[in-house]
Design a protein around this nucleic acid. Structure first.
Lengths: 201, 201
DNA sequence: TGTGAAGTTGCTCATTGGGTAAATTTGCCC
DNA sequence: GGGCAAATTTACCCAATGAGCAACTTCACA
């Protein structure tokens, strides 16, 4: 067999990733075309070429399937933060991780992403799942920040920083799809981050 | 009839509020006793003395019934902010509104509240709904802040302040139920708010 | 190539959310 | 008090869902 070099995950893992991605894309297509409420799990599974039962093996519901892209985006961001040089202060490392992912990626970070943000705005059920993603990500990120800064576990500082950063990104993305005329995402995000640095009064 | 004085909302409205409250309390009792997953909508309706269909007229699901208390708490907080003197800067007004509701209420702001926070920590489905509540509240609060500060609509500043304040409260409440030994809630909340004022680095 | 593990599928069932229409309760005017 | 209109509850219903189970298929690894 022509084995690929390095850490190719094996056929099994690749197939799983493929069906997961297929289900996600099917959910997106159908939701954009017909609106979320009109989309059944069965239709998604059909379009992805698997059974309804298999859908349940991958996602807890159509909302999860739809937001899988967001989940990945957040995971990537956290990973990028985790590998920043350890001598960087956390907030700097967060902003650098963000810049690495978005600013360098050019203007439109992800063509589907804007659609997803718009879908979330329309459907409250999506909002819940998305916010839940942010909350769990906040947890993981806070732990990483705590390790980096060497603060005692249970300290409030890392949690607040994690929340501020993530919800800053969230707010920036909603502003991004609202703003008229449109501005590039990273510009808005930077503005939000700077705003966070300024004290409230 | 012995009509009550003042702005009594009428029997119809009072009964609606009563059943809503009854459903909420029934959901709480059952969730605390048996765990959220074991609780069916039918059981909640039974305990509240209404039909399953009536439950649906009040809440979209058991999570909503459970988090009704949180929804009210947030509504009260926003209302308290709205009636602060208009010359106060928004951040000051937010903190004063908070103090009015919590500090003056004595040590334990709500005996059920801690239970709810714990339930949300255990069940991800609750986390989603709760975060959705925060997101919609964030929207309303941002509008009020924008009006008070006279910023142009669509400005980023009010949204960020609303998010910072609300998620500050959210983080404070999770810390509150975690912390060992326990500290009063408003102390933790103040600490979090102060932390938010300090710039990140 | 064989053997066990992992993944898929069809079947099934309890639960759910909501449409509809009948029945009941409340508000209000006489 | 009686009666009518509007609001609310309820019973009945159905499509959709999430998940347990057992058979079947595919993959990994020796």
């Amino acid at each position: 067999m022509v084995s690929a070099v390095g850490t190719m995950p094996g056929l099994r893992e690749r197939k799983k990733a493929a069906t997961r991605q297929a289900l996600h894309e099917a959910a997106m297509r159908l939701a954009v075309e017909h609106g979320l409420e009109q989309v059944t799990v069965e239709a998604i599974a059909d379009l992805a070429g698997v059974s309804r039962r298999t859908f349940s093996n991958y996602f807890a519901g159509k909302e999860d399937a739809l937001l899988y892209g967001d989940e990945e985006r957040l995971r990537t961001l956290v990973d990028a933060f985790a590998v920043r040089p350890p001598d960087e202060p956390s907030w700097t490392a967060l902003r650098h991780a963000f810049d690495d992912l978005y600013s360098r990626l050019g203007r439109s970070p992800d063509p589907e992403w804007a659609q997803r943000v718009r879908l979330v705005k329309k459907h409250p059920s999506l909002l819940g799942r998305q916010m839940a993603n942010y909350a769990t990500t906040e947890q993981r990120l806070a732990e990483l920040i705590g390790q980096r800064d060497g603060t005692s576990p249970g300290s409030t500082r890392p949690r607040i920083m994690a929340a501020a950063f993530l919800h800053g990104i969230r707010i920036a993305s909603t502003l991004w799809v609202e703003e008229q005329p449109p501005r590039p995402f990273e510009e808005i995000a930077h503005e939000v981050m700077d705003e966070l640095a300024r004290p409230f009064h």
